Simulated assay, not measured.
Amino acid sequence: MMTEGGDLCDTGQAGETQSEPKLKCAQQLIQITDDWPEVVPVTEAEVRMIEAYFGDLLDELFGPLP
């Protein structure tokens, strides 16, 4: 159940204070598989879109392109 705070586990009622919240969802192991190729092809149109929407953020994180 998704709660108001975006948490996947219901940790109690709103306004309730607990030092250690008790999770009310099943704890199970999740197997993660990385089956992506070593190099992921990206089209020129995809690069332009990424640069248009995330260019400022990418420059802030990695610096401007040389």
Score class of each variant (00 low, 15 high):
L65D: 01
C9V: 08
Q28L: 13
P66D: 03
E51N: 07
T17K: 06
L61M: 09
M2N: 04
M1Q: 08
E51M: 08
G63T: 01
P66G: 05
F54A: 15
M1D: 11
L61D: 01
S19C: 05
I32D: 01
L65M: 04
E44P: 11
I50N: 08
P41S: 06
V47N: 04
D56Q: 13
E4I: 06
T33W: 13
R48G: 09
D10G: 01
G12E: 01
I32A: 10
L8F: 10
P66M: 00
Q13V: 14
C25E: 00
F54S: 15
A45T: 15
P41N: 04
T43D: 12
P64Q: 07
D7Y: 05
M1E: 09
L23Y: 09
L65C: 03
V42G: 06
D56A: 15
E60W: 06
E16L: 06
E44M: 11
D7I: 02
A26M: 12
V42T: 12
K24M: 11
G55C: 04
V42W: 06
E51Y: 07
I32H: 05
V47R: 03
K22E: 11
T43R: 10
G6P: 05
P37I: 03
G12K: 00
M2A: 10
V40P: 03
P66L: 01
G63V: 04
V39D: 07
Q31P: 14
P64Y: 04
